[in-house]
Nucleic acid binder design. Structure first.
Length: 740
RNA sequence: GCGCGGUUAGCUCAAUUGGUAGAGCGCUACAUUGACGUUGUAGAUGUUAUAGGUUCAAGUCCUAUACCGCGCACCA
């Protein structure tokens, strides 16, 4: 009996845990099992067909290159949610995909082409250029897919989507047409945010304000003009058509209604003095030079007073005004020229420096020039008949206030509401080539009085040409990338077709994403889904923080970014995942350091060695789920464990993964390894048969439970250990049941 | 200007509904050839930013201040 059959534990346990030899192999086995696909889970009996549903869409990474630590954090959190629910028996779907990221990708490829060939997109032509960007996007997509796999994401690859692929394009055109028909999308000549560097308009949300110090000039248009005005942009003043004062301002009241023709900086301007409540009498001189063509507020003032609009700056941020001292000058040069002219005419009264915010384009960094242009907009205030006369703003508000979209952490609800309050019509047309072309076509027709007019057609497909009429030509512009991203929760499930996926998995359960894109994306998804489908896109929004480097600044390659893939190669992905999740509450930024990752690599190895000890201690034994003859000591330990498991289960339900990860870590290392295993050595050596048997089953039971609990956090090492556990009838850990 | 978050051990951060503060890394000393040195044991370091208040009890709730960070608005 003492000389029982010599059994050995698998060779691999004799060496430290080797993530490199494990991770790829394990991921492959998962993929081959098909269990990332809920249909197969049902088919193979791993999930009940009538089980509750848990669904998510992956926030599609931009096809601009590679993943960074932020992606790794998001993916880890999502994968934890997905694996947890799958193990809990939910019919679980996680849809992967990538985003074409219109401006970002186009800018990136333009940069590469210019660097390598000294060519601009115009040199290549639209078709060839788009072909190049497509090729880049494809390659980038392949890289990203490889990285998402490395991260261990249990996404259903059979449902992979791309915001610019055929199905998603159909969804975009369908959505556009419906909005067009409902009068929510309109084309209008309005002042927009023009990015001279990217040569396109951008939406209000794509503006990044840079603080700087600017000069504030106080002057008069001419010697006999009755009021002084102040500005930081003298070069725009050649486009002034009015001076606005507060209607009750006693200093200026008497001039309201008067008009003046003035020679100013080499051109002629015509100024009308108007009274407008928007003017703050205490700011500057209390009188505003109104430049309708180059300022949002002035544009609005001009609308109210029916003022002339005189554009003086062009798309290249150069002066288009007919003045010998300004024509074709860059705005910065023109500014100096106007100030010089004011000085020479002795019109400048004061010059002081003030702090100001310079509007720049998020993607290109170009300084935004407000320009009046003919663009496409989404009307956020129009009442929609098919939605009980509610506006898009109403629908967005309602989703959170009444329809129960929960935002975690809830303080972002306030931020979201505040954004809706300030929201103006969304400019959706972009003058770039890479993206969804606006599904609107035009052809010329003879108007009344022989004027040339355009006939407009909006449709899901191009209209057919009529041999007796001029040919249709399509609108040149493409759509804001967030238009297609807004459809993501349902375009990925087959909309506009009424697919089984759509009815089963929409609304999705949770959307996990960074708080930095709450406006860009979260709000737009709510807008699109509530309007187009009449339901919310998700029930819960989990907003995670940004990953910062050890210095606390946003991760960027130039500033010592910690690359997740590099870290994975060094320490294993389980370590990277754990280090990202521990002590990272929702909405809080987290600092990433290699030390932290190293600590969790040690943890993975600790687990490995625990398994080695347990396996070698129970050789010949099989895990008995129903074993009940536990010793008093073991019973007490199990009771303790149950308390912990209860806490953990509650916290998993409350999205408190950072607490769970920490607790499991502490229990496994400080309790299980340091105390329980040490004591076990003594029991195995000196204890009676019953105690030894009890302890063996206790160790097995504990390891089984904690491998399962740890699996969503550290999927690779747990699955690898699981494969050698003496558990009869075991399946892959991904579909094993959650222990509680 | 409006709003939000933060300030806890040298560093990075925890502390679930208020119950005399914890972890990792780092540091000090010691130990150990049988699961693991990617280890173990022991230890040091805190007026929880400041000042008030509520409470039997405050890191946690309230008020104010300071500093750091962020969002929005303004930016003539």
């Amino acid at each position: 009996m003492i000389f029982c059959m010599k059994l050995n534990i698998p060779q691999k346990f004799l060496k430290p845990y080797d993530p490199k030899a494990t991770e790829e192999k394990v991921y492959k086995s998962w993929q081959e099992s098909g269990f990332f696909n809920p249909d197969i889970c049902v088919e193979k009996g791993a999930t009940k067909a009538d089980a509750p549903v848990f669904s998510m869409v992956q926030p599609p990474p931009n096809v601009t290159g590679t993943l960074h630590m932020g992606h790794a954090l998001a993916t880890t959190l999502e994968d934890i949610m997905v694996r947890y629910h799958r193990m809990k028996g939910f019919r679980t779907l996680w849809v992967p995909g990538t985003d074409h990221a219109a401006i970002a990708t186009q800018a990136k490829v333009e940069g590469i082409i210019y660097k390598e060939e000294k060519k601009r997109r115009e040199d290549l032509g639209r078709e060839e250029f788009v072909r190049r960007v497509d090729a880049y996007a494809k390659q980038s997509r392949d890289t990203i897919v490889g990285q998402v796999k490395k991260l261990g994401a249990s996404v259903d690859w059979s449902r992979e989507a791309f915001t610019l692929d055929g199905k998603r394009s159909l969804a975009v055109r369908t959505a556009f047409k419906k909005m067009y028909d409902d009068g929510l999308i309109y084309r209008g000549y309005r002042i927009v945010n023009w990015d001279p560097k990217g040569q396109t308009t951008i939406s209000d949300d794509e503006i990044v304000y840079m603080e700087s110090i600017g000069m504030f000039y106080t002057f008069r248009y001419s010697k006999d003009f009755p009021v002084s005005i102040a500005t930081t942009r003298p070069e725009t003043k050649v486009g002034d058509t009015a001076v606005a004062v507060h209607p009750e301002d006693v200093r200026y009241k008497k001039f309201i209604g008067k008009e003046y023709s003035i020679d100013f900086a080499g051109t002629k301007i015509h100024i009308k003095i108007v009274g407008d409540d928007a003017v703050d009498p205490k700011f500057g001189t209390g009188a505003v030079g109104v430049t309708p063509a180059h300022s949002h507020i002035d544009w609005e003032i001009a609308q109210r007073h029916k003022l002339l609009i005189v554009p003086v700056i062009n798309e290249y941020a150069r002066m288009s005004v007919d003045s010998p001292i300004l024509k074709d000058k860059k705005v910065a040069e023109a500014r100096i020229a106007v100030v010089d002219w004011l000085k020479s005419e002795k019109l400048l009264e004061k010059e002081e420096s003030i702090p100001q915010n310079v509007a720049t384009a998020e993607r290109t960094g170009g300084i935004i020039e407000p320009l009046p242009k003919l663009q496409w907009f989404i009307d956020v205030n129009k009442k929609i008949a098919s939605r009980k006369n509610k506006s898009l703003k109403d629908l967005m508000r309602e989703a959170v206030l009444e329809k129960g979209v929960a935002i975690i952490p809830d303080r972002f609800e306030k931020v979201y509401m505040n954004w809706i309050e300030n929201l103006r019509d969304w400019c959706i047309s972009r003058q770039i080539w890479f993206g969804h072309r606006i599904p609107v076509w035009y052809r010329t027709k003879q108007g009344i009085n022989k004027t040339l007019e355009y006939e407009t057609y909006c449709g899901i497909e191009a209209p057919e040409n009529d041999p007796n009429k001029p040919d249709w030509f399509q609108d040149e512009d493409t759509l804001d990338t967030w238009f297609s991203a807004g459809l993501w929760t349902f375009s990925t499930l087959g909309w506009p077709e009424e697919t089984a996926d759509l009815t089963t998995y929409h609304p999705t359960s949770v959307l996990a994403t960074g708080y930095d894109i709450i406006f860009f994306w979260v709000a737009r998804m709510i807008l699109m889904s509530t309007y187009l489908l009449g339901e919310v896109p998700f029930k819960t929004v989990y907003l995670h923080g940004l990953v910062r480097n050890a210095l606390g600044s946003k991760m960027s390659k130039s500033q010592g970014a910690v690359d997740p893939i590099l870290m994975c190669e060094k320490y294993g992905m389980d370590a990277v995942r754990m280090s990202l999740v521990v002590a990272t509450g929702p909405g809080n930024d987290t600092k990433m350091s290699e030390d932290k990752i190293r600590a969790y690599k040690n943890f993975a190895n600790k687990l490995w060695n625990i398994a080695r000890f347990v396996l070698s201690s129970v050789l010949g034994e099989t895990y008995d789920e129903k074993f009940a003859e536990f010793s008093l000591d073991d019973r007490a330990l199990l009771a303790e464990q149950n308390e912990l498991l209860k806490e953990i289960s509650r916290e998993m339900g409350e999205f408190k993964y950072y607490l769970v990860a920490e607790k499991v870590y502490a229990y496994i290392w400080r309790e299980f390894a340091d105390i329980i295993l040490e004591k076990s050595k003594d029991i195995f050596k000196n204890g009676g048969d019953a105690d030894r048997e009890s302890r063996k089953q206790f160790l097995l039971r504990t390891l089984v439970k904690f491998l399962k609990i740890l699996h969503p956090f550290a999927p690779f090492v747990t699955e690898e250990i699981w494969s050698d556990m003496p558990v009869a009838g075991k399946k892959s850990l991904i579909i094993e049941s959650w222990p509680m």
